Every structure is written in C-alpha cells, then in structure tokens.
Simulated assay, not measured.
Amino acid sequence: METMTRFKALVVEKGADNTFTRSLKQRDINELGAGELLVRVRYSSLNYKDALSATGHPGVTRQFPHTPGIDAAGEVASCSDGSFAPGAQVVVTGHDLGMETDGGWGEYIRVPSSWGVPLPAGLSLRDSMILGTAGFTAGLSVLKLEWAGVRPESGDVLVTGATGGVGSMAVSILAKAGYRVVAATGKAADEGFLRDLGAAEVISRAEVMAGAERALMKERWAGAVDVVGGEMLAAVLKSTRYGGTVTCCGLVGSAELPVNVHPFILRAVTLVGIDSSRCPSATRLEVWQRLAGPWRPALLGQMATEVTLEGLEDEISRILRGGVRGRVLVQL
C-alpha cells in the first residue's frame, strides 16, 4: 500500500502557563517514534484514559506535543522485521500506545512489532475498535472470572458502571457466555439499553451500596466486574458470596479502597486486578479470539457512536463528565 509522508493527527500541546490545547495538524511520518511496525490507522476509539491524556493529565502523558489514542486498527504500511506483511490488517491496543507513544488519533502509528495482533477472523477493523481496549478489558475480566472457577451455574455476576465502555461490554460478553448478569448503574433511563445488551436485572448504585457501612453485607454475587473502584468496590467485596471472585479494572469512582479484611478471611473472596496494557501476548491473543467468536457481543454494531477526529472535542468533555453510553468509535 502507498504510504503518505504527511498525515493528519489530533495533537495535544502544552503551553508555557501549563494549559493544554488540542488541534488537528499535519504531521510527518519521520516525527513518529521508533518501532518496526508502521500502521495506516483506519479506526481508533475514545477511552477514559484518552480523555485524560487529551487534557494533559500527568498520570497518563508527560511528554508533549502528543497524539492520544490507546487503540488503533488498520493496515500494515511496513514492518522492518518481517513480522507482518504489508497490507495485513492488525489491531494495536495497550502497551504504551497513546500514553507516551503517539497513538491512534493520527492516520499513522509506529510501534514495536510485538504490539501488533493480527485482526482475528470474524471481526472487521471497525468491529475491533468498537471493542477496543474497553472490550478487551471486559473480555480479560471474564476470562479471569472463568479461571477462578466462576461459571454460569455459580450464580449472579454483577457489573458496576454498566453503561460505560467497559461495563457495557462486560454485560454483553457475560450474557453471551451464558451468565446471569446484574447490571448496576446510576442512570435509570438506560435500563432498556442494558437489558438489550443481555442484563437479566438492572439495579441502582444505591441498591449495591445499601448496608455498606457494615463489616460484611448479605452474600449476593458469585462474581463481579467492577469498573468504579472506591466505596462501590468495597461494597461489592462485602456482598460477594463465599469463594467468589471480583475483578477490578477501573477507578472512575475513586482510586482508594476503604474495605476491611473480612471478605477475604471470612468468605475467601478473591480480588483480581485487571491490566490490559501489559497483558502477556498469549493471553491477549486468547481474549481477542474469544471476542471474535463465542464472546462476540450480540449488538456490537449498535454499541458505538461514530465520530471523526473533528468530532472528538465534544466526546472528550462528555466522557470526563460520565455522560458517554457504550463506546465512541473514531473513524480516520
């Protein structure tokens, strides 16, 4: 395929007064960092981490100017070590993409070839970015529940923050895998959306938190996927059944965890951390293959709002306010 030397990208710049500006600019291929794999990006997505990078959060990105986008899918323009043939379709998520390495909000990325995953059979490039890091993180959470022995017959599985990117994906993947899913949300108006994704029951945040002041709560969940953190995660742990497992992959509520040891030493509850960035390659491939096959969300094409780079500004503000439902797909 023909490679352009100049390409369009959304660039975040830091001013002398520590303010950050975002604009579309023409960049040069030679400005990209080191790596064997050059990819012509066709689709990316918007994740909470992207919004933090786009607004200059130092916990995500410290070097500016910078192009965010922790997800990218497209065709191989070149690969100097021969790992991929030119024109091959690949997905890149996680690692350092979009953090200190220029990411998918540009028409090209250059990364180590080990970061690339061949597009799984059964997914288009567009499909892969509707899933993106959110779908991968949700899939990794379900895989870890399965590894811990939480099966569909074990009982109800709770998903917190269920209308967000990871939460909505987790609801859909768990339902497709045969679990009875209880979706927790603060957005009562989205109950229909969650039931369409496969939730058997939709409950409020208040119902999850009821009785959370106690050392232990009534046993309810065989497992849980938590994307909220903070007091919500503490309440989930206190209400998980004996021997159950809770996965933790987010902190939109808080990075603090105000919980005692009782769930762990009296109910043998397991808390499993989920990190999508440094996930081993073999596990990464397994999750993507399942997402393309038995775990593929039934309503995948309906789970995303599609925007161009020019339309990202409003979506960045919306996701930081917690106003995004499902996924935001970025079409390049």
Rank of each mutant, 00 (worst) to 15 (best):
L52K: 12
L52W: 03
S53M: 01
S53F: 02
S53V: 08
A54Y: 00
A54Q: 00
T55C: 05
T55E: 14
T55I: 09
G56E: 08
G56K: 04
G56S: 05
H57T: 10
H57I: 05
P58E: 06
P58N: 08
P58G: 10
G59K: 09
G59V: 04
V60A: 06
V60S: 04
V60H: 04
T61W: 01
T61G: 01
R62V: 10
R62F: 06
R62T: 15
Q63H: 04
Q63S: 06
Q63D: 13
Q63F: 00
F64G: 07
F64E: 08
F64Y: 15
P65S: 04
P65Y: 07
H66W: 10
H66K: 14
H66C: 09
H66A: 13
T67H: 11
P68H: 13
P68V: 07
P68Q: 09
G69I: 03
G69N: 02
G69S: 01
G69C: 06
I70L: 03
I70Y: 05
I70A: 04
D71M: 14
D71N: 05
D71R: 07
D71S: 06
D71L: 14
A72S: 01
A72D: 00
A72W: 01
A72T: 00
A73K: 03
G74Y: 04
G74A: 10
E75V: 00
V76S: 12
V76Y: 03
A77Y: 07
A77K: 00
A77V: 09
A77S: 09
A77R: 02
S78Q: 14
S78K: 11
S78L: 14
S78V: 07
S78D: 14
S78A: 15
S80G: 11
D81N: 15
D81F: 09
G82K: 06
G82M: 08
S83F: 06
F84R: 00
F84H: 03
A85D: 13
P86N: 08
P86V: 02
P86D: 03
G87D: 04
G87H: 04
G87E: 03
G87W: 08
G87A: 02
A88D: 15
A88H: 12
A88Q: 14
Q89W: 07
Q89T: 15
V90A: 04
V90D: 12
V90E: 12
V90N: 08
V90G: 15
V90Y: 14
V91Q: 05
V92A: 09
V92P: 11
V92T: 14
V92M: 11
V92S: 12
V92R: 11
V92Y: 11
T93R: 07
T93S: 13
G94L: 03
G94H: 00
H95K: 15
H95A: 10
D96A: 09
L97W: 12
L97I: 09
L97G: 06
L97M: 08
